[in-house]
Amino acid sequence: MHKATKISNTLLTALLTVLSLAWIYPVLMILLNSLKKESAITTSSAFQLPNGATFAGFENYVNAIDSKGFLSAFGYTLLITITSVALILIFCSMCAWFITRVNTWWSKACYYLFIFSMVVPFQMLMFTLSATADKIGTSLTLGNLADALGFTVSKSAAEISLLPVNTPYGICIIYLGFGAGLAVFMFCGFMKSIPLEIEEAAMIDGCGPLRTFFLVVMPILKPTLISVGILETMWVWNDYLLPYLVLDRTKGYTTISILIQYFRGSYGTVEMGPMMACIILTVLPIIIVYLLCQRHIIKGVVAGAVKG
């Protein structure tokens, strides 16, 4: 019996090893192909290793970074992700605290609206959302505000947008609104288990609501903050359609997912080399971050799934 278990375990380990190699292989294949010369990359030879004649070194990487604007897309993606997730964590946790502690019909209504928004697919909103964002971004300018108030401002100042939601600097507002559903839901779920006495003690000792929240509630929330942060980061970093429709691409605002789509030219030509270099440059930081904080990521996913 014992021996049989041992043999079956060895077989199982072997099987899982083969399977996990198959899991890594697609990324590995892209890595190898990204080192080949553009002319050597064909559909039928993608499985061959690069050799002396086809090896191109880092030519494709230089190309992707230099002429395809990889760095600016990477920078914008990073900016959007960091600002959006920071806003979501701060404001949604505050909002969730208010909703759980203040028991009125309108706080409950807000809660159910947030829950409802989790279910609605993005296709329902995409046309109106991109039109709204465009309108807010281009018509809510300093010039128009000054006109309404009877001032005059210089022409360059008049073009400054007050709420530039169609730029990487302002799109975080839309992400805050759109990511609020999951975040508020998860925070509320956790908040219900925090004993009210701790907060009441702080309030009686003279803490205002803001200090109570940031000094007492926030530290208790830490595990949920990490889980929500990870789930929202995974979503914002990889999101394609929302930035594609909302960002003003005429001003050169792209994210990584949009950039990769650009390599497929409009006439069916694809610049395979730089595209694969771009894929590797995108995947590499994700894998590094994943290996560094795997435990948190997996925990965050489990927490999100069990509650969601």
């Binding site: 806003l87 404001f91 949604c92 505050m94 909002c95 605290w97 208010f98 909703i99 502690r101 203040v102 028991n103 009125t104 706080s107 807000c110 609206l113 947030f114 928004s117 609605v120 329902m124 909103l125 109106t128 959302l129 709204t132 807010i136 939601v165 507002i173 839309i174 992400y175 805050l176 609104g177 759109f178 609020a180 559903g181 508020v184 009210l196 907060e199 009441e200 309030m203 609501p209 803001l210 929240f213």
Partner: peptide, 28 residues
Amino acid sequence: MQRSLKRWWPVFLLPTFAAFCVGFIYPF
């Protein structure tokens, strides 16, 4: 506590809810 917190809705509830209106309710 509920009483004193209730007056703070513009700080706690409004930022998220305003963004939620722009990003979800109005487009919906």
